[in-house]
Amino acid sequence: MSGHNHSDEQQLVARLKAGDQAAYAELVEQHAGRIYNLALRMLGDETLAEDVLQETFLNAFRAIDRFEGRSSLGTWLYRIANNAALMHLRKREPTTYSLDEPLETDSGEEVPRQFFDFCCLPERDLLSEEARREMLTAIDDLPETLRVVFLLRDIEGLSTRETAEQLNLSVSAVKTRLMRARLALRERLADYFAQSATSAETGGTLPSLS
């Protein structure tokens, strides 16, 4: 995850366990950005995301003696961060928010409607700053129950089973929510790229009303 090889990581773990402050700083430097972004996407709140970031490293430093190296240091750290973020989600809306609650009945919203094929657009369009902002807003606009599953599964790369364990959900509930999240994001991006392609054809300006 960090691009470091196994023996580099073993050395870093040994230095962390020995209380080497420079090793602590190295760990922070490698992972803080990604953890902050994950927490920000999950919680949609900068102050809470910062709390999660600090809690993650404080907890990790306290628990480093118990790190057994069964997973990579990065994976271990993201698990601590996920747990911290989920605690905040549960704390925020304990009465209205439960990850275990059944999803509302199928409203047919996930049926694709936009068939603009954006796969072959040039990279400058797919990876533009504006497209990136649209992608982030689209995640933020997902219902929380879908957003968390999408973040853990598709952004953090957890397996379906790991995601289910983290969220106390059944594997089939994770699959259903992941599918709905993916289809909702696809629809949103297809709409966005269809509109930006139309606007590019008309010279980048909106058609005149007159």
């Binding site: 803080a32 950005g33 900068e46 910062e50 970031l53 982030l136 598709d154 952004i155």
Partner: peptide
């Protein structure tokens, strides 16, 4: 195809830099 592309675009989404003030308070 667009669903696969959507997932790929999200997987490759670059993380924004940690804001300086957040970084400072973390350290």
């Amino acid at each position: 195809n667009t669903l696969e592309k959507t997932i790929l675009l999200y997987r490759d989404l670059p993380a924004s830099d940690l804001p300086d003030d957040v970084r400072q308070r973390l350290y």
